[in-house]
Design a protein around this nucleic acid. Structure first.
Lengths: 217, 217
DNA sequence: CCGCACCTCAAACTAATGTTCGGCACCAAT
DNA sequence: ATTGGTGCCGAACATTAGTTTGAGGTGCGG
């Protein structure tokens, strides 16, 4: 595996486009798709850059095969086509702010990792992002240190859904099952042996809904 | 959506081939791939049958686009290309036998469900199956009632891996982290606040390794 | 036997797609 | 100025792949 070099702007643009095209269409783009998508005047420019990127280990090309581009991950393994890739935009842990919602914005997050999720998730929920769970404070919700939660951004939640709940007063974010009960909200850990916590409804802000928990084995 | 009809043998053959090709290559086959794969003498026969299958709602074709075949599921929604579908072959719960390993075999399992997993899993691990977790006996391993564990069949395990461990004497199956320590084995719950259990090495049989836990939200 | 669906075949045709070629512009080192 | 590397360009070329065409087989109910 050749060492990775920094990508040229054009190559980064092409790489981004391939990923986006894959998300939207489920099949890899053709050279001419890339050409159009990146406003490049010639297919040979695409070919030229694809060669370089293949040499540097960013992707693999099956020669003489239509749509034969495969993206490779950091370890050089192929990323399955049609896979939904979600960006980890920060971490969540009780008592700490969530970078994704803080003023710094996404681009300040040190975590630039991309995780692969079940492809049906993105089709079902649309835009998603992911948070890395720091610490074991969510252990009562069956979510461990190092797990990654995939979040669908939303301000509302139906009863029983696992949400990212922001407690305004405490300035704490937590992952719990959400139950609206009159003018207060019950936040129920997923582990039934743990007790729920009750908070006034106007002290809770729903930031998003958990659609998946990923754990590395 | 037109009603589904029974597939002709040739059409079933083509459908199977497309699924297999998708699993192996990550991109849809061309008409000529199908022709070769199904030993059909002419591309027009493939085209003819693909038209019928599209009419009957089994797949979708993007016209004038190379590799423009998309499989549709029962509800008519597109199945993400490269998606790995894994069959749930039974359930696992302490004290109960695992249908997948019992003499009845897979086909006796009442659960015929198919779950979709991250497509990279199948590429990385090969053949997989899934077990539905019954009861909360695995709660100490952060695995709840109703969760589905995706298993890679194997007889060996490296230290620290989460495995399906069969305790011969107790005739119990359990999900734990596996640590070989001399002539005994430490089975460590994933939840670090729980205590491990120790058993003689010859009383433990590794049935498979957990590669993913799926939980419905 | 005929007509008529249903399926198959071989061969072409067209469109899509991958690949190559010669040339040009820029820039840095010589 | 010259050289060489890099990146881009337009165009042509070669291959792959989708589509069409015309012909021919079955089998089945008239």
């Amino acid at each position: 595996m050749p060492p990775k070099k920094n990508l040229r702007p054009r190559q980064q643009q092409i790489l981004d486009f391939i990923g986006q095209f894959l998300d939207e269409n489920g099949i890899p783009p053709t050279v001419r798709d890339i050409q159009r998508g990146c406003s490049i005047s010639s297919t040979s420019v695409v070919d030229y850059n694809l060669r370089l990127m293949e040499r540097d280990g960013y992707l693999k090309r099956r020669s003489e095969v239509a749509r034969g581009i495969e993206l490779l991950d950091e370890t050089g393994l192929p990323v399955a086509n049609g896979a939904a890739r979600v960006q980890i935009v920060g971490s969540i842990a009780a008592g700490e702010p969530i970078p994704a919602f803080s003023s710094e914005g996404v681009d300040s997050a040190a975590e630039f990792d991309i995780v692969e999720v079940r492809p049906d998730l993105k089709k079902r929920h649309g835009t998603l992002y992911a948070l890395s769970v720091k610490g074991t404070s969510m252990i009562d919700a069956l979510i461990d240190d190092g797990d990654v939660v995939v979040i669908k951004p939303t301000n509302t939640a139906r009863n029983g859904e696992m949400v990212v709940a922001w407690l305004k007063e405490e300035e704490e974010a937590t992952l719990k099952k959400f139950f609206r009960e009159g003018d207060q909200v019950r936040l129920q850990p997923a582990n039934s042996t743990m007790d729920p916590i009750y908070v006034p409804a106007d002290n809770v802000e729903v930031k998003g809904r958990v659609v998946e928990v990923l754990r590395q084995y």
